[in-house]
């Protein structure tokens, strides 16, 4: 082979690499153009046009663009609240999830009980009720949380319970050999946890955490029931109802949620890359 083309083995290797790179490029271009085509089809569905096929005709969805234009900015401002609630809540959730997962895996019966009780109680009750509880029930004990604060605590506790299982799976996925090697190096159990187990567990946990975060972005709209938080969906439903334009208003909200999701997906990809540095992974085209 090598002799046939008259190339040196170095040249051959670099041409192979170049070919791989081009193949990857072409693949990405195809993905992007297909995305644009799908976006166009989606947009066309809301154009209000009438499609005729001989005698049959299909009406596409008609939107009041004037209403959308007039209220776009007002709904957009809600993004700040949505982002603030979601980020504060996911940080709280990660701390709670890690503590709860470690407690669940500890040798203390009380710690295991507290952790499983927490996960069971929170996963077994609706998020809506948890928000109302922190907002309207705690004042009877003299604890006054703001609407934002009650929402963050309820969302953080709720997602912490779900994510506790993610962290547990991540910690358990760290190989036994890693523990043994760390012990052989003379690490204390605390060092082992901090330097060996948690960094690797986090790497396993990042994709599912990203997933939870994206779900939380949308669940954050529940906090608006308190009456003190005016995020994207709240603004959209109020304007939609009083102007009889629910569909238009909700579509604007949907657009913002989608954009936020796209942004955070790309952030997640970056974090994922960072944590898997030095890891051999299966080669993929993106």
């Amino acid at each position: 082979m090598i002799a046939d083309t008259g190339q040196s083995s170095d040249e051959y290797a670099s041409s192979l690499l170049l070919y791989e790179k081009q193949k990857q490029r072409r693949f990405q271009v195809k993905v992007v153009t297909s995305w644009l085509a799908l976006l166009f089809v989606l947009g066309f569905m809301f154009s209000g046009a009438t499609l005729r096929f001989g005698s049959a005709s299909i009406n596409l969805i008609h939107l009041d663009l004037e209403f959308i234009g007039r209220n776009f900015g007002f709904i957009a401002i809600g993004s700040f609240q949505t982002i603030a609630i979601s980020i504060a809540s996911i940080l709280l959730a990660m701390v709670l999830a890690l503590v709860s997962a470690l407690a669940r895996l500890s040798r203390s019966a009380v710690a295991v009980a507290i952790s499983t009780f927490y996960v069971s109680l929170i996963r077994g009750t609706p998020l809506y009720l948890q928000i109302i509880f922190f907002f309207l029930a705690l004042p009877q004990m003299g604890i006054y949380l703001s609407g934002f604060g009650a929402g963050v605590i309820a969302l953080g506790l709720n997602y912490g319970a779900y994510m506790s299982e993610i962290f547990r799976a991540g910690i358990q996925a760290v190989g036994k050999g890693q523990h043994e090697a760390a012990t052989a190096l003379g690490m204390s159990s605390r060092q082992k946890l901090r330097l060996i187990v948690i960094p690797q567990a986090l790497r396993f946990a990042i994709p599912p955490i990203g997933n939870e975060y994206i779900a939380m972005l949308k669940d954050s709209s529940l906090v608006a029931v308190t009456g003190f938080v005016r995020e994207i969906l709240w603004r959209a439903t109020k304007l939609g109802r009083s102007n009889f334009r629910n569909l238009e208003a909700l579509l604007v909200a949907a657009l913002f949620y989608w954009i936020l999701t796209l942004i955070f997906t790309s952030v997640q990809n970056r974090i994922e890359k960072r944590y898997s540095q030095g890891e051999r992974t299966v080669r993929t085209y993106h």
Binding site: F135, L136, P139, Y144, T226, G227, R230, W234
Partner: peptide
């Protein structure tokens, strides 16, 4: 002004919120 859901307003026990 604050804007809780209607059924929360009519349910009373506002926890001194408004």
């Amino acid at each position: 002004f604050v804007t809780p859901d209607w059924d929360i307003i009519t349910a009373g026990n506002w926890g001194d919120r408004w």
